[in-house]
Nucleic acid binder design. Sequence first.
DNA 1: ATGGCTAACTAACAGTCGTTAGCAAAGATA
DNA 2: TATCTTTGCTAACGACTGTTAGTTAGCCAT
Lengths: 194, 194
Amino acid sequence: MAEIITDRKSQITEKATRLFRERGYAATSMRDLAAAIGIEAASLYSHLRSKEELLNRICFGMAESFFRARDQVQSLQLAPPVQLRLAIEKHVEVITNDVNASAVFQHEWRYLSEPDLSVFKSMRGEYEAYFMDILSRGKAAGHFQIENEKLAVLSLLSALNWLYDWYRPEGRLQPHEIAAQLSEQVLNGLIKKS
Amino acid sequence: MAEIITDRKSQITEKATRLFRERGYAATSMRDLAAAIGIEAASLYSHLRSKEELLNRICFGMAESFFRARDQVQSLQLAPPVQLRLAIEKHVEVITNDVNASAVFQHEWRYLSEPDLSVFKSMRGEYEAYFMDILSRGKAAGHFQIENEKLAVLSLLSALNWLYDWYRPEGRLQPHEIAAQLSEQVLNGLIKKS
DNA sequence: ATGGCTAACTAACAGTCGTTAGCAAAGATA
DNA sequence: TATCTTTGCTAACGACTGTTAGTTAGCCAT
């Protein structure tokens, strides 16, 4: 089993992602991280400026992935129901593509400090607005029944975002199939029509 | 505005709940907590045995609330669709009743140490099984269309569990109304029928 | 061979962590 | 009045925190 050796910086980021996910950012020490790699804590600083730089890279890296997914979806000019299906599919793809980074993205962003924290929050808001826009246009066009759109968007995204905790790449279900069931559930609900 | 003075132990637990929610368990020090109350860190130990005891009380307190809600629902012997509506309503009620404790319950339980950690996880599994049972019976009776029940349960619960982050007691929507919209969304989906 | 770059090391800094020991004041009980 | 309990205090323990300084060994281009 040949180990794939990439550069140290990538190796550090990957191990940090795993540890931040497993123990949380605040509870992971630089010495923990160094030990997981097999070097001394001080040696990490040949490759990075601070612990927070790692968190930064992970959180904003995921944010960019989500934005890339959004841009792909928006470039296609689809009707709201089918656009929502695609948006869900792409969102699920991003999460399942790196479950550790997704977990850190979801839970540890609050340990960012200003000004990054504010930047992160506003990117998050922008991404929610993208889903909100799909729902609003769908409602206006008579496709969707939604009372409170904010509530709908946030519960919809939450129904997708736990996936990092459950998905296993070696598991039976492929991201595409997961996305299909979740879309079906979100769009048509649990109740069977007659 | 008269302050309601309860015993110190309750006051400490409440402040700890707020701080653990805002900063995370690992990033909240006993000195932070003591300062928020207006005493010295060492003085806390006249009222509790350890920091983890606080986390314990918060997490298992919430777990008991969820179980009480479940027991109320299960005592009523309802058909799956209406039982699910009630289960959602009660679940939302528990969350909105203490959003800080709910946040801690969702995010900080992993800092429990054994054997409590295992106990907590199994209680969580039991609660998921309660929802799973409703979906399974509903599917078997022909009320629900569900492909993968585990997927359905976890996304359903996730669609409810973010509420602690959004709900404001002083806000416009009452827990009951929130539960109603979420139930509608879960059961009938976003797509408008004909 | 020589100089410079890279990535590692050891040692240490100044601060924080949860927690304990020992003590003091106040209020309740006898 | 005397004693016990409660609840706070100061001081301190040993361990751990992120990070820096200074150094060294190996590699590459000259």
